[in-house]
Design a protein around this nucleic acid. Structure first.
Lengths: 236, 236
DNA sequence: ATTTGTGAAGGGTTTCACAGCG
DNA sequence: CGCTGTGAAACCCTTCACAAAT
């Protein structure tokens, strides 16, 4: 039995390679661009055609200097004394994020969470298409969720190669996650979004991002505790 | 009509105040402690009583130096030449994160996602208790989810003050999220976990963390694009 | 001999403040 | 005059490498 070379690095960043080597856009900036994009899209729908860095920054929950520096990494797309053209920025950010291409996605695990993800509107829009819903439980196979037929996990490799899937979403129980991940990667998936509460090991050229409810809760707990300590001190 | 003072800052960090001012534990470290805790808990269950920084770091997907520095912020809990006592570390990390206290949680929005969250095991364990499931849709009110009765959103304030809720989870559609957030904060909630794809505005003393599927997908798309550019270059 | 704890060095990110341009 | 784009400073975080401890 051969061990595939593996590594798992900092949470939610590119598995191998140092940040922003080729594109010049840093990881921190990339993580904010989707937020700007969302705000800009909603501004465009409201008929706004121009925004200043200050207004856009406020709506995105960041400081104006940070916003301007972020946008400056894409090019000089603003007009001094005026601001940014909303539609043009939408296009430029979409392009920078790679959203002008299309990505096929499989979701593995069709429990409550998997169903919620399958029905999520964010998929249909902007270049992502769910081409497979997989589950290990044969009782669920064949049912329709968000218009997509659930298929058995055995078909994972087939579906991935048939649809040239590049992104896999893991919504299985923790125990199954690493196995599923290995199979996804083995079949050619190069990006994984993991909702299972485990640290996944993947080869260096695969990206993993994780979404972990209990980690988020624990971080909030930390700050809650901090608040009550401060309170206590203020009283005492 | 009065405007409540608001601010929304960097994604997923304390709303106001600079990091780690009082506790000496930095935000980056706090975000990793839950991962260490999970690994340690599972080691303890496997009967392991001692770990070195190298083994623990590997399991947590970080470098050993980073792990040691993180743990050193809690105190000197290791033994040179030996490693860390697993059970003792579990306790110390739990304490540092505030998990020795108990937190009451309400979940607002009982769609697919809200149901998935309500059923999530991570809640029951480690100090979090769901004391309310709320939905605006009267058709859902009264049904039982994960053993908890769904109640109408009108009761939000009542439930929060009755149970001294400090954490609110928003799993509503985007359009309702800010309103719900305002009501949560108005009723005394000081930490919010937001699953709706909007930037929430809150007063400085409230923490907001967000979980956003479409942002994660877009970040993965960026890296996918980068990979295909590199590939193309390697060929050409 | 082994492994922790940590100063110091090295990167990356944010913020400042202003020059540059419309 | 207003707002962008950006060097420079400040800050935070990670990594290195080794002294200290058992």
């Amino acid at each position: 039995m051969t061990m595939t070379p593996r590594s798992s690095h900092s949470p939610n960043s590119r598995a191998g390679g140092r940040p922003g080597r080729r594109t010049g856009i840093s990881e921190a900036t990339v993580a904010r661009l989707p937020v700007y994009l969302r705000v800009l899209t909603s501004l465009a729908e409201s008929g706004v055609s121009t925004v200043s860095s200050e207004v856009l920054a406020n709506a995105a929950g960041v400081g104006p200097a940070k916003l301007r520096k972020d946008l400056s990494h894409l090019g000089s797309y603003g007009t001094r004394g005026v601001g940014y053209d909303v539609e043009f920025l939408v296009y430029q950010i979409s392009r920078a994020l790679g959203l002008t291409q299309h990505y096929s996605v499989v979701i593995v695990g069709v429990g409550n969470l998997g169903q919620a993800l399958a029905g999520y509107a964010g998929f249909g829009t902007r270049g992502f298409r769910v081409v497979g819903l997989l589950d290990a439980d044969r009782a669920r196979v064949g049912s329709l969720i968000a218009g997509i037929e659930v298929r058995h996990s055995d078909e994972l490799e087939t579906i991935i190669s048939e649809h040239d899937v590049s992104i896999g979403v893991i919504a299985t129980p923790a125990g199954a996650a690493q196995d599923v991940c290995d199979r996804l990667v083995g079949a050619g998936v190069t990006s994984v979004l993991n909702f299972a509460p485990v640290v996944l090991s993947v080869p260096d050229d695969v990206d993993v991002r994780k979404v972990d409810l209990s980690i988020e809760l624990q971080i909030l707990a930390f700050h809650e505790q901090r608040k009550s300590l401060v309170e206590q001190e203020a009283v005492g």
